[in-house]
Design a binder for these strands. Sequence first.
DNA 1: TTGACTTATATGTCTAGACATATAATCGTA
DNA 2: TACGATTATATGTCTAGACATATAAGTCAA
Lengths: 242, 242
Amino acid sequence: MSLSTDSPDQPTLYKRIRADIEKRILTGEWPPGHRIPFEHELVTRYGCSRMTVNKALSELAQADLIERRRRAGSFVRRPQHQSAVLKIADMRAEITGLGRAYGYELIGRKLRTATTVDRDRLGVKKAGKVIAITCRHSADKVPFAVEDRLIDLASVPDAATADFSREPPGSWLLHHVPWTEAEHTISAIVADDRTAEALDIAIGAPCLVIDRYTWRSARTITAVRLLYPGDSHRLVARFKGG
Amino acid sequence: MSLSTDSPDQPTLYKRIRADIEKRILTGEWPPGHRIPFEHELVTRYGCSRMTVNKALSELAQADLIERRRRAGSFVRRPQHQSAVLKIADMRAEITGLGRAYGYELIGRKLRTATTVDRDRLGVKKAGKVIAITCRHSADKVPFAVEDRLIDLASVPDAATADFSREPPGSWLLHHVPWTEAEHTISAIVADDRTAEALDIAIGAPCLVIDRYTWRSARTITAVRLLYPGDSHRLVARFKGG
DNA sequence: TTGACTTATATGTCTAGACATATAATCGTA
DNA sequence: TACGATTATATGTCTAGACATATAAGTCAA
């Protein structure tokens, strides 16, 4: 057609089809709810096989830009949200990735029967055993974050015998338990006396809080709260659109 | 083979192949750097065509779980990072999505030649014109967030004549300018007097800060800083693994 | 040993078919 | 009118090939 006839070193066909459609969606030419041409129409338009347009549409569906419905067709999805991929490495990788020396210190470790608060935090009904861990991560000897973690022993029995005095629980879990789902909640608080001391900041200083819940097939594995000094640390999430 | 012979209502073959490989990666059986069997080996193992294993591997590559290198093979990727998709709707959608009444109020709008600070914030060299906007979003008449935005008029000339007294600049931009890339930086501060007044919170109360930079093909469009009361608002990012 | 050239090979893309399956639409019946 | 059965159709998956292309590895000359 007359669109994008200026292609110097032509990317592959399915990528061009994908880009064409993506562009129309992002520019609003095809608004949310709009029906994308049927595969057989695109086959005619681009003069290629169905598998090729199918690959383009499948990738757009995977990226949540369109929704595909059998017999009905493919439609531009509503949420024009910006979405960003927030990469949260485990603490060691995060700190060494910044080119700084990683330090770890176990502050407390308690094995107990889940309290009401614990059960609420893990989202479990029964009062099984849990491990509560408090520890500190530092970068170049400076406190970087304090971690307050709860592990459900019913889901991760091995954690009872793990040595968390040398290995951070986050790393240990990463290597011993495959997660399937996680939810992060980000908020801000001001440091209370205990937090202030652990992070070596002033009482009342801002802290960034990340609460992370990790499941494996609908079963809670661990709940962790990370406290970062709010003015020193920054979480970066980058999104790539077109 | 002998693995997963118990499949009640068999998902499609390529999904099973993908799940099999994913499982080995997540359990650590195939650690980062490990070479996945070649496509032709998987073809033999699963007794299917190459296109089928190719689809499975392509999806794993798209999900960043493996890396594919021509002639060399496919390898388990290093970053065991957890990554989470952070969906940031525009403010109206975010608030109405919570079932609350959305309110908007323009606090200030200034058209000026970019100052040094402005240029720094937008990451541009030349001193073109910019619009600086301050506004407030509320939910059920309660302040929800204050927004401090800078728009580069060289990239978005139409913004000069847009009426931001009724439509929030975020919504306007979303509908008028397609973005291609965005970066979010999340941090925490304590409210100064001006912020405290705008959000109707106490001076020194924690605030969650989101700085967002949006580009379209390497060109900065807008820089925005959003301030939320840190104890009331929560940013949720959810990740789906297996 | 080093650099340039050649070759083998795994992935990348594509085709022209096929059958499966969910479901919107239609038609028939209570 | 409402509901249940039937049908048409768009997508979902799959095959058995094909050629393209990047590149690891091997070859050979300077």
